[in-house]
Design a protein around this nucleic acid. Structure first.
Length: 423
DNA sequence: AAAACTGACAACCGCAGGACG
DNA sequence: ACGTCCTGCGGTTGTCAGTTT
């Protein structure tokens, strides 16, 4: 192992700690507290860097540490917390008094991962591997269809450009959308607090997963990533063609029909109907919000990603245009007024969620269709009864509401400070 | 008995973010 | 506004004891 740069400079000791060193550090901190860690080794008479002293204290010498093997209950709790928080070991450790993040991390890497694998549980999603594979396969199919459609649209564009300039541009715009989606070129434009929260929560929880399986992350278990929105059309088309209304529909043959109409001063809207085939185009031209409404039954999104956590549909809305038109398959088209009202209600719900997130978890609150958690399901919700003896959600979380809230307090703080930026 | 393997634990590294001058 | 220092975090690697071959 290498040596801390500070250790190099000062030729300090590294490696395992001797009992004498432990004794020096322990007695020093017991008497004086640690204060500034960088000054601890000097004051304690140790040839170690402050960083090393701090680590030794936190992971080994601290008096409140619980030594010994992890109980089954602790292991189960770690698994459940990991499903919810991902590799946030410090936050997981905060829920297990006397245990360090390092200890939990080691347990996870050396033991729990293997146990989950043996049980056929995906380590990231905490879902059965077979289910994950199914989703991945269907995502591949979706991407394939998307590429085919993209090619088809390109062809249509090249043909129509000769005769119809307007529809050509519209087709281009849509093709760009497809391209943007299929290549996962996503960027945030204007997002509500809710969007930001979802992104923040999901991306941080599953950052590893996004690296290895971006499509599934986008479309699989955490469709909230769609809160990101590319702005290809906004940026590239506004001046060129004014506002664009695109309406896409899937014909019974499964092919995409695109109707375009252009109005000089009309609303800046794109409504895209979720297809009834396995293809699920999520429009990305505008900032999207995951809707909190319960989709009507006739929204037949057959994609596994959506179905996995209940049915989702997405509002397409403009950030700076008072008018917006939301149209999903079988859903009503909203006017600007009720859109505004509903958005306010949604924001209120999110505000509530930010301030007492755990109270809104499915386990604590009944999974009413009206509840946020009815649709926003933390990965915890997906934790199966691994290892046989999982603690009931509701019991644990009701026992430790304040601790659970503490888990999120750091993120909540960041979020609340970030909201000022976004809204 | 010895080498190879495995698991658990301990420690280090690099980075990010906050505090402070 | 900027640079520096300190702290905390997550990933990675080293160490060692126990087990297997």
């Amino acid at each position: 192992m290498g040596r801390h740069s500070c250790c190099y400079k000062q030729k300090l000791r590294k490696g395992l700690w001797s009992p004498e060193e432990d004794e020096k550090l322990l007695s020093h901190i017991t008497k004086h507290g640690h204060g500034c860690w960088s000054s601890v080794p000097k004051q304690a008479g140790l040839e170690r860097c402050g960083k090393s002293c701090r680590l030794r204290w936190i992971n080994y010498l601290r008096p409140d540490l619980k030594r010994g093997t992890f109980s089954q209950q602790e292991e189960n709790l770690i698994i459940e917390l990991h499903a919810m928080l991902g590799n946030r070991w410090s936050q997981i450790a905060a829920q297990l008094p006397g245990r360090t993040d390092n200890e939990i991390k080691n347990l996870w890497n050396s033991s729990l991962k293997k146990k989950l694998r043996q049980k056929g549980i995906d380590l990231i999603t905490h879902k059965p591997l077979s289910e994950v594979e199914n989703v991945e396969n269907k995502i591949r199919e979706q991407k394939k269809v998307a590429e085919e459609l993209s090619n088809e649209l390109n062809l249509m564009n090249s043909e129509s450009s000769k005769s119809d300039g307007a529809s050509s541009i519209a087709t281009k715009a849509y093709a760009i959308e497809i391209e943007g989606y299929s290549s996962s070129k996503i960027m945030m434009t204007n997002c509500s607090s809710k969007d930001f929260f979802l992104d923040k929560f999901m991306s941080s929880n599953h950052e590893n997963y996004t690296n290895t399986c971006q499509p599934l992350d986008l479309m699989g278990n955490y469709p909230f990533h769609m809160g990101y929105a590319s702005s290809y059309v906004n940026h590239s088309r506004d001046n060129e063609v004014g506002d664009v209304r695109l309406t896409s529909q899937h014909s019974q043959s499964g092919k995409l029909d695109i109707n375009s109409e252009f109005t000089s001063n009309s609303i800046n809207v794109m409504s895209i109907i979720p297809p009834t085939t396995t293809t699920s185009f999520i429009p990305t031209s505008f900032p999207y919000k995951p809707s909190l409404h319960v989709p009507s039954d006739d929204i037949s999104i057959s994609t596994p990603s959506f179905a996995a956590a209940g049915s989702y549909y997405w509002e397409a809305s403009t950030s700076n245009n008072s008018k917006s038109s939301i149209k999903t398959n079988g859903s009503k088209e909203l006017t600007s007024n009720n859109t505004f009202m509903e958005s306010q209600v949604e924001e209120a719900k999110w505000y509530e969620y930010f301030h007492s997130p755990m109270l809104m978890l499915p386990s604590v609150q009944n999974q009413s269709s009206e509840s946020l958690c009815g649709e926003i399901k933390p990965a915890t919700h997906l934790v199966p009864d691994t290892l046989g003896a999982m603690l009931p959600h509701s019991t644990k979380q009701q026992q430790q509401p304040s601790q659970n809230i503490n888990i999120f307090s750091k993120d909540m703080h960041k979020l609340t400070s970030a909201f000022g930026h976004i809204e």
